[in-house]
Design a protein around this nucleic acid. Structure first.
Lengths: 225, 225
DNA sequence: GTTAATATATGATATATGTCATGTTTTCTT
DNA sequence: AAGAAAACATGACATATATCATATATTAAC
């Protein structure tokens, strides 16, 4: 199993602020997991009991609404962590994490990380920074949900996926989401998401080939109202 | 001017985890401010350069949307703090803070608090906990915005104000918000908020006297769909 | 206290989005 | 490769919410 102190992934998250000794200690107690596309990493209401570091792949964090829809709140990609909020609050997860493609993650037990948070102020300050960043994102999403149209939100979702997760050699978005996933990001009915994507296609803003979507006119998407 | 080490307000927030020495040092550099109802404490995009501790009163945190509406993201009440996110990220504020009634706040300059965050792990862990709590709230709001009706969201907003800010002797909600404020919490047009409140009145869920609102049937409000 | 300004109220109508139905692809299974 | 299942697509219609107009009540200003 790989050693944390040599792992390059940590440079993308707060774990970079741990000392070499701390990393070596974590290395001995961490476990590594491979998760297949579609698999649930943890469920809403489940105790996580630790922190995940995503070595490869992407997952969605979602919360079941009373109306049966599974609202996607955030997407977590290679280099980022999973479970910070529950770790800090010492609560069960309020979100479900589901792999969007094949993933590799490391799991660090709660007690180890908590010890470091309480000893290493640089580490806890970094965690604080990450959480502050997440909070800003969440505030922006609230405003978008409240004030923008489905059309606008879907255009922004496409731009987001494009900018954060990149494209394949043929120009299609490298993260392949179902229409239902897009609906659950935007907070709309699946049929509505499908309809709007069809409109975007007719307007030559995107092209589609099955589940593969290619952005044809990024600036056009930015102008969507 | 009051001394932080003797102030009872701090027990409600992370400042309780500062040592007596740290509190005494902060006492010497903090400033106290009285803010009138309606006054803006800080604007969107403004550098805050410190942390506010709310000694008395309530304010709203809002963000201007492109469509001109001012979405309310959070309400901050006596005992809570203001400006943590910007403090930690060292960014200008992404939100505007506006007093909803007369307020008294203490302002602690950034450098002092940052010093404590980097020295006192208990304090930074407490801040982390508070931020984690805010993040959970924000995630819940996203799901509500995306999946619930205006009617439902407004019912929940009334319940929230009732449970968190209490009522006057006559039973009316002690925090008096305009219909526009309610619209901006719920994320709807002012006319829609007015209309739904009128419906609630006709259904005897609430009664109104000008801006004063009294919840007449809390369980009824909880059942609103 | 009177007037002006602002907030609340409500109707009429337009529009966006949800829901249900149905057909067609695409993907998965064996 | 064939059949079954799932995902995508689209029409028809229902419904929630926004918008615009206008009236009334409340609050603020002098």
């Amino acid at each position: 199993m790989g050693k944390c102190e040599q792992c390059i992934i940590k440079q993308f998250n707060a774990l970079k602020s741990l000392t070499k000794d701390e990393l070596m200690r974590i290395s001995t107690c961490k476990t590594s997991k491979f998760i297949k596309k579609g698999e649930v990493i943890f469920q809403e209401g489940e105790a996580i009991n630790g922190l995940y570091c995503v070595k490869d792949g992407i997952c969605k964090l979602s919360k079941l609404s009373e109306n049966g829809k599974d609202q996607i709140v955030k997407m977590v990609v290679k280099g980022q962590m999973l479970g910070q909020r529950s770790l800090v609050s010492n609560e069960n997860s309020n979100l479900q994490a589901t792999a969007l493609n094949d993933m590799e993650v490391c799991f660090i037990p709660r007690s180890e990380i908590i010890a470091d948070l309480q000893k290493n102020p640089k580490f806890s300050f970094d965690m604080l920074k990450e959480m502050a960043h997440d909070l800003k994102d969440a505030d922006d999403i609230i405003v978008n949900m409240a004030q923008k149209s489905v059309r606008q939100r879907l255009a922004e979702a496409l731009i987001y996926v494009n900018e954060n997760f990149g494209v394949n050699p043929d120009g299609t978005l490298s993260v392949v989401l179902s229409r239902e996933d897009y609906a659950n990001i935007v907070g709309t009915a699946t049929e509505s998401a499908i309809r709007v994507l069809s409109q975007f296609r007719k307007e030559s803003l995107i092209s589609t080939l099955g589940k593969f979507i290619k952005i044809e006119d990024l600036n056009g998407l930015r102008r969507v109202e």
